[in-house]
Simulated scan of single mutants.
Amino acid sequence: MELPFYHGNITRKTCEELLSKKGKDGSFLLRESESMAGALCLCVFFEQLIYTYRIFRESEDVPKRVFKTIKDLIYAYEKPNQGLVVNLRYPVRRPKPPRRRIRKSKVEGDGDYDGKRFISVFLA
Rank of each mutant, 00 (worst) to 15 (best):
R57H: 10
I50Q: 08
R57W: 07
M36D: 14
T69G: 02
I74C: 03
K71G: 10
L40G: 01
L73Y: 07
Q48C: 11
L88V: 02
D61R: 10
E60F: 11
V85N: 06
M36N: 15
E32M: 12
G38V: 06
D72E: 14
K71S: 13
A37P: 09
I74W: 00
I55W: 04
S33W: 00
E60Q: 13
K64G: 06
R89P: 00
G38S: 04
E32L: 12
F67I: 05
Y51M: 04
L30K: 03
S59F: 09
D72M: 08
E47L: 10
S33N: 03
Y53G: 04
N81P: 06
L30A: 02
V85E: 05
P63M: 07
E47N: 13
K79E: 11
L84A: 01
Q48K: 15
Y75W: 10
N87Q: 13
L42Y: 01
G26P: 04
M36V: 15
Q48F: 12
K68E: 14
V62Y: 11
A39K: 07
K64S: 09
S33I: 00
D72T: 07
L40C: 03
I74H: 01
A76G: 08
Y77W: 06
L29Y: 03
L88H: 00
A37E: 15
I74Y: 00
Q48G: 09
Y77M: 04
S59C: 11
A37M: 14
L73I: 02
R31E: 00
Y51N: 07
G26Q: 01
A76Q: 11
E47M: 11
R31D: 03
A37C: 11
